[in-house]
Simulated scan of single mutants.
Amino acid sequence: MARIAGWRPEEFWAATPADVAAVLGGWRDEEAGGAGVDRAALGAMMESFPDGRV
């Protein structure tokens, strides 16, 4: 979310799933059917871009 929306870690962790979904909703591949970001994709992003929280 830092790269996509400029959120700091505390802003990400304070956000609701709906907040994150609203921001990520624009990140869809229209040619792939516009599926958007599902739970698995969000988990993969969190693993790829950890913010240091344990």
Rank of each mutant, 00 (worst) to 15 (best):
A41Y: 03
M1H: 09
S48D: 11
P50E: 05
D29P: 03
A15Q: 01
D29Q: 09
A35Y: 02
G25D: 01
G26P: 02
W27E: 14
A44I: 07
E30I: 10
G36Y: 01
M45P: 00
A5Q: 04
G6E: 03
T16I: 05
E47V: 08
V37D: 05
G26L: 04
W7G: 08
R8G: 09
R8M: 12
W27Q: 11
R28P: 00
G26A: 08
G52I: 10
V23A: 03
L24P: 05
M46K: 12
A2W: 10
L24G: 05
A21S: 10
R28A: 09
W7V: 03
A32I: 01
P9Q: 02
A32Q: 03
A35I: 05
A35K: 10
S48R: 13
G43R: 12
A35N: 08
R28M: 04
W7H: 01
F49P: 02
W27L: 14
M46G: 02
A2Q: 13
D38V: 03
V20F: 00
P17A: 10
A22C: 01
E31V: 08
R39Y: 08
V37T: 13
D29S: 10
W7P: 04
G36V: 08
M45F: 09
R28T: 11
A21R: 07
P50D: 07
L24N: 00
R39W: 11
M46Y: 04
G36L: 02
M46R: 15
M1L: 12
D29W: 04
A15F: 01
A35Q: 13
P9M: 01
P50G: 01
M1S: 14
A5K: 12
A41P: 03
F12R: 13
A40E: 15
A22L: 09
W7Y: 05
D38S: 06
A22W: 03
A18K: 13
P17E: 11
A22E: 08
W27F: 14
D38Q: 03
V20I: 15
G52S: 11
R28Y: 11
A2S: 10
E47P: 00
